[in-house]
Write a protein that binds this DNA or RNA. Structure first.
Lengths: 225, 225
DNA sequence: TTCCTCTGAATTGTCGACAATCGGAGAAGG
DNA sequence: CCTTCTCCGATTGTCGACAATTCAGAGGAA
């Protein structure tokens, strides 16, 4: 799993993982100020490791830090989300294009079975929206891994991934477009199987554009209320 | 300038900037182990701020850190560079596409004059290869800013920018393809002026592909010796 | 000679205390 | 009543010392 948090290692790493979790799930509210002493005590560690974790999270763009004024949880407004999806479209599109030439037949077949499972989950009337969402992320990350591009894996895996989960958590209530999404996923796998990178890239980009459109409409409707 | 390093702020920030400079210019050799105590003394600070800087650099992908085993300067081998250019192609292509719809006429005109200056510099037989290189980065970053996408600006500006500079520093001896590059830049500006995002994206992607091909050939030739 | 084990020195990880800085409550003046 | 200044509490930034871990080399056995 991507969120596998090795509860071992330095305290700073542990603090990072706990902070990520708290921020993604909304336990730490957007814009909230993070008090170093308080968090350090809650995590049972000194302020040193915590500050290092904060610096790391700054790199992940999950918090915003101002010298001598503390660090705050990032605010995911519509503009930020829009920017995020544009970047995703570019990066995952590229990943898809490369993956079409780099993935093994076995890996592509595995993607197919992954989608089969996903479909079953949907038919079983998954109240487990969360699992579906994670499964979707899994699909996307498998393709990114297929690109064999370390930098893409880092960017989409470690960093944007968290922002995306945060975004989903905030908008997970409905967003029932799993059906069309699944269909698009199948198209993408087919393009990969045919080793058509250009087509795979285009399909992935459209897929992400569609996801963003869906989310944005939901946000707009929500704000109208 | 992008490399403007405010020599004020927290010691950790100062350390970051000095480390970036040392790594990009090669003063700190690739793969070299970074001793915390030694660096802290050289910078005239304690190990605390230095460790925070190191964590920050880890986020920038300029160093690699292993728990209980220290941090080392990243190694820019051909695979890493290739990955970097693929990511650049995706991100700058997207930036270009968006910029075509977002930049003001004034900004586009400014790009044109920027290229005029660049051309003059070339004709004046610039021994100042460095200035040209920085000018080129300036051109690219102006377009990224034109996209109005904060995340793109961050990714391409603060982070990849440094890796790219490091890459260029290593391969700056010849790489005399300023002429075709300038011509391609002009084409891109024209596409932007016509508000043709799709074309602008394609031209930018080809431009970056060409730059990478040129660099790779040079590396291959170098290694053959 | 080669390999293993066992130190112990060097380096990283962590903590608590102190200094510097910022934000806000409350007093002084208009 | 509002504005501005001053001081104080709270929070961040920094340092030095200590604990935990790793790595290299000395020494010994096969």
């Amino acid at each position: 799993m991507l969120l596998s948090a090795p509860k071992q290692g330095t305290l700073a790493d542990i603090a990072s993982h706990r902070l990520v979790h708290s921020i993604v799930t909304g336990e730490l509210v957007q814009g909230q100020k993070l008090n170093e002493a308080e968090l350090a005590e809650r995590f049972g560690m000194g302020r040193g490791p915590l500050r290092e974790a904060l610096r790391h999270m700054e790199g992940m763009r999950l918090v915003k830090r101002v010298p001598n004024a503390g660090t705050r949880v990032v605010i995911l407004d519509q503009k930020t989300m829009s920017d995020l999806y544009a970047v995703r479209e570019a990066l995952e599109g590229m990943a898809c294009r490369i993956a079409a030439t780099q993935m093994t037949d076995e890996e592509i077949a595995h993607l197919s079975t992954l989608l089969d499972n996903h479909e079953k989950q949907i038919e079983e009337q998954g109240g487990k929206l969360y699992a579906q969402s994670e499964g979707d992320l899994d699909f996307h990350y498998q393709i990114v891994r297929g690109s064999r591009n370390e930098m893409l894996m880092d960017l989409l895996g470690s960093e944007q991934y968290q922002l995306l989960r945060m975004c989903r958590y905030r908008t997970s209530r409905n967003a029932q477009r799993t059906r069309p999404a699944l269909s698009q996923h199948r198209q993408i796998v087919e393009a990969l199987a045919q080793r058509d990178g250009e087509l795979a890239e285009m399909l992935m980009r459209r897929h992400i554009q569609g996801a963003w459109r869906s989310i944005r409409e939901m946000i707009d409707k929500e704000e109208a209320v």
